[in-house]
Simulated scan of single mutants.
Amino acid sequence: MPTAFHHASRALASAILLALALLIHLQPPASVHALESARVPRNPYAPPPSARTPTLPTAAATTPSTLLASTPGATPDPLGEWYAVGHRMAQEAMPYYRTFAVAEKDIGKRLTEVLSALGIKADTQLKNTELKLLQQGWDDAAAGRALALTYPPDQDRSIVPPALRGFFRFGKSSPGAGVETLADKAAEWKKAVVKVATGSEKGVEGHGTGFIIGPGLVLTNNHVVDGSTHFAVQLEADNTIYDATLIAKQAVPDVALLRVQLPEDHAVLPIGISAQCRELEEVIMVGYPQFIELSATYVKGSISSTNRVFHDCEVLQLDIRANPGNSGGPVISTEGNVVGILTFGFGAVDPKLAQFTFAIKTDTVIPFLEQHARGQYSRQVE
């Protein structure tokens, strides 16, 4: 069985907010299950020890909130992602610092403390060049200066630790790589969807669907895992099967969280804001229907109603046909955020009601994730 544990993830707003809460003496969410800290992956773009630190060009001041990694004038560099990530982290942190009146002279010192709160020990886990670039990007954004460095246009994957990933997308999703179609996006989303096999010492007894939300974390339904003692997940890309451990589950909402050792640099799906959903908006469901031998399939439909309650839980009603095995699968907005988790389809009871399907609103799942995932999951930036 593969043993590599951590994969691609990002410190989205939830993780940064948690870090900031620690630093400005707010009360962070309670923790029940501590997760392993992310180890730093090998840097395939790192220069030899004799190579010099990239020279940062002088940049004029501008409004931080308008800056992107593809900002005109930013110089591509093999290590530019480190600088760009520091820049974006500061952009997201500055509103909180202003709200809590953190002195400008102290903001530069906060980066190391934020990294520590995210499980990254800057003095031992990062190279001097990497930390220097992170700090420079942080300082430039805090001072309102434009992005000076960015990653190369042909960079195909992130080179920063998992907890810092997700600010930028690579490969076909890189800035300037062309317009993505829905099919392009869905192909990427599918990489984060897994088959969840359940059973006992006697073998596999059933299956459902789950999706990767952070390093080693798979979210699915409680009713998928309930009553089972053995769990495994299977990746779509190569059909590799990995043993999984049940971290937590609850009946309302119908969710469960698994921990699994996955390869590094694996895709994740961010938890979206279901309150922003509107009726008739298009959504895509990805799941493993009916037979365990089948690969993942897509179903495209729309939100019929945003105001439904099913089994004491707030749900979205979908104009989507769901089959047994799809339970626990993500319902994804066209922007790539999970806004619902499939929980029940009436088509399994009556074929005439096949397109009468319910998905748990992701907003109702946040307290569960904050308690059991400790912010180590990807979330949509508000």
Rank of each mutant, 00 (worst) to 15 (best):
A8R: 13
R10I: 01
S14L: 14
I16H: 05
A21M: 12
L23V: 03
L23S: 10
A30V: 02
S31F: 06
R39P: 08
P44Q: 12
A46E: 03
T58P: 13
T66D: 06
P76C: 04
G86M: 08
A90M: 15
F100D: 04
A103L: 11
L126H: 09
Q136K: 15
G137D: 01
D140M: 07
A143H: 10
G144P: 09
Y151D: 14
Q155S: 02
D156I: 11
D156A: 14
P161G: 09
L164R: 03
R165P: 00
F167I: 01
S173G: 09
A192V: 00
V196Q: 10
G199V: 09
G208F: 00
F211V: 10
N221T: 01
V224L: 13
D226Q: 15
I241Y: 05
R259T: 08
P263A: 10
P263D: 12
A267Y: 06
I271M: 14
E279D: 06
I292L: 08
L294T: 06
Y298H: 03
I303C: 05
S305F: 01
R308W: 02
R308M: 12
V315M: 02
D319M: 08
P324T: 02
G345N: 05
G345R: 05
V349C: 02
T357C: 04
T362M: 01
S378K: 03
